[in-house]
């Protein structure tokens, strides 16, 4: 049997398809992962939003053309929450895979590290988009009104926000050596990221109640992911939010590629031996 002899573009294309299709296959096989990803935002939508709907009034604000109820308001934030959890879960599985082995199969491929990581990031984003669409369909079934065009226009925004949140997780995974350390990191990252944003409350409300927290929300890239998704869901563009998301993606991805660099990465410096 002869060794494979393929052109470089073909090698890259096949490897990319392999990485993405493996992630999708894993997602389809792990039904518990899918349902937990769906149940988490639905709990917020059905229970949390039901309580807040009565106490929190929202005036007309972009991108909404009219008054909206609280449950309508938090849908984009919950889409972002799905992508945030997916990004963290992907990075958790990268730490696990690196410790347990299967990540090594990827990293010992004859392809540049940056390409492997970008492919892996893209694969995780595809999974998060599937989860988000499943959530949006259930939200519609529960009576949330979303313009049908929004299902289409939110797709490129979800791709960008998914990549950004995945890159954050990837950078984290490159700095954490052991799985047990990662649970603490996740809690430390997920909850402040989610609560210090416009996912659950409009920022002007936050400004009225606590100026410092409002400033922190303004500094949080997740806020801009939520706002980009909010506009995308209503077939509108928030250029500023998209720009912040794009810049954040580039910065965190560059950090992750550095972190996984076999010469200079964080793991090289931290690794302690084995045998």
């Amino acid at each position: 049997m002869m060794p494979p002899s393929v052109s470089t573009p073909t090698l890259y294309r096949r490897a990319f398809v392999g990485i993405v299709s493996r992630e999708l296959l894993r997602f389809l096989k792990q039904r518990e992962r899918f349902f937990s990803a769906l149940v988490r935002p639905l709990v917020w939508l059905v229970i949390f939003a039901a309580g807040f709907r009565a106490v929190l009034g929202l005036p007309i604000q972009p991108p909404y053309p009219t008054y909206i109820t609280y449950d309508v308001y938090i849908v984009p934030g919950l889409v972002a929450m799905i992508q945030l959890f997916n990004g963290m879960q992907s990075s958790l599985s990268m730490v696990y895979d690196r410790e347990m082995g299967s990540m090594r199969v990827l990293l010992t491929s004859p392809l540049p590290r940056w390409f492997l990581l970008v492919s892996k990031l893209f694969a995780g984003t595809c999974v998060s988009i599937l989860q988000a669409y499943a959530f949006l369909l259930v939200a519609v079934a529960l009576g949330i009104k979303i313009p049908w065009m929004g299902f289409l226009t939110i797709l490129p925004v979800m791709a960008l926000t998914g990549l950004m949140l995945g890159a954050v997780g990837m950078l984290l995974s490159s700095t954490v050596r052991q799985l047990e350390n990662f649970a603490g990191v996740m809690n430390f990252v997920i909850f402040p990221t989610f609560f210090l944003s416009s996912a659950l409350y409009p920022l002007w409300k936050m400004r009225e109640s606590n100026y410092i927290v409002w400033q922190l929300c303004q500094l949080n890239p997740f806020t801009y992911a939520v706002e980009a998704l909010r506009f995308g869901l209503y077939a509108k563009v928030n250029g500023f939010a998209l720009s912040i998301v794009a810049v954040t993606l580039v910065v965190f991805l560059a950090g992750a590629i550095f972190g996984y660099n076999p010469s200079r990465g964080f793991q090289v410096r931290k690794s302690g031996g084995g045998e």
């Binding site: 494979p4 490897a15 392999g18 990485i19 299709s21 493996r22 096989k29 299967s102 199969v105």
Partner: peptide, 26 residues
């Protein structure tokens, strides 16, 4: 590798196809 590196939830064929794609095989 010393550690098991197969994906437990995938079949033998799916695991090997994944690797084959990483090596550029059709």
């Amino acid at each position: 590798f010393q550690q098991p590196t197969l994906d437990l939830d995938l079949t033998v064929r799916q695991n090997l196809r994944y690797f084959a794609r990483l090596r550029g095989l059709s």
